[in-house]
Amino acid sequence: MTLLTVTGSHIALQAPYHPELSAQARRLGGRFRGKETGWLFDADQENALRGLCHTLWGVDGTASALIDTVTLRVTVRPKFHEATLWRTFGSDIWMCGRQIASRRPGGRPVAVPGRGVKFTVGRPRIEDGPTGSFMLLVDEGCVFTVRDMPRMALKAVSRTLADIAEWEVT
């Protein structure tokens, strides 16, 4: 859920976690006011906030984006370049505001799908990196679904996956 609510001299942003949100919100003068309120901004930041919503989640922050959702089926193309979305060094894999895969915290490193993501062919995996770090990977040929993706975000999905995966609405 990503929603902007304009109330007089302030705008509230309620949004799911994204690793870039905190830095970008502070850059725009935002203050986090707890889970129920979310981030609070001056009203003159509305255009910048809508741009931020497009950049991080592919939506404009309106309530209509929350209502019209789809399920995506993504197939990772073979022979993708190693520096793509599907390989991250020491961090999770994100696509249009959705966590596709992460490392389960704790003991032995295990890769797990993100919330609302189901792998039907293949699985995310972890490779040990230098100096005890790790690399999270989604290999070519993997197929996964992403539930509850806002239809409004499909343009961002298309740009993000243009050369690295096939996708369809199911």
Rank of each mutant, 00 (worst) to 15 (best):
M152L: 03
F41M: 05
P113Q: 09
V74K: 13
F144W: 10
V74H: 13
G132D: 04
R50L: 02
R50H: 03
E127D: 10
V143Q: 14
D92A: 15
R151E: 11
A111I: 07
M152P: 00
S91Y: 01
L85Y: 09
L56Y: 03
V110E: 15
W39G: 02
G97C: 08
L49E: 05
D148M: 05
V110T: 15
L66C: 06
S158E: 05
K35L: 11
R108Y: 09
R31K: 14
Q24H: 08
T75K: 15
L52W: 01
E127N: 09
G106P: 01
P113E: 07
M135F: 02
T84V: 09
F32P: 02
V117D: 07
G106W: 08
M135G: 04
P105I: 14
L161C: 11
H18M: 06
G34T: 10
S158K: 08
A83I: 06
L49V: 06
D68W: 02
W57R: 03
L85C: 13
V157S: 03
G114Y: 13
I100Y: 03
R77G: 00
P105V: 15
D139P: 01
V121I: 14
S102W: 06
T62Y: 01
K118F: 10
R50Y: 04
T120I: 15
L161S: 09
H18E: 05
F32E: 08
T55M: 00
H81K: 15
A63Y: 11
V157I: 15
A23I: 05
S91R: 10
N47C: 03
P130R: 09
E140P: 15
C96H: 00
V143C: 11
K35I: 05
P109C: 11
E82A: 13
R98G: 02
E46F: 08
D92W: 07
R151A: 13
D139I: 00
A83D: 12
P78I: 10
R87C: 01
F89D: 13
R159W: 07
Q24P: 00
G90T: 01
F134L: 03
R27W: 04
P19A: 04
L85Q: 14
D148A: 12
I126G: 05
V143H: 12
R31W: 04
M95W: 02
R27N: 08
L136H: 04
V74S: 11
T88L: 03
I126M: 06
T120L: 13
R123C: 08
K79I: 07
M135E: 09
R108N: 08
G29S: 12
A83V: 05
G61F: 05
R26C: 09
R104I: 11
D139S: 12
L56E: 00
H54D: 02
G97E: 03
S22I: 04
Q99Y: 00
F89Q: 15
L28C: 03
V121M: 12
A111P: 04
R77Y: 00
L72D: 12
G141R: 12
M135V: 12
K79M: 12
M152I: 00
G141N: 09
V76D: 11
V117I: 14
T37Y: 01
T84F: 06
L49H: 06
T55N: 01
A25H: 10
R159M: 10
R73F: 06
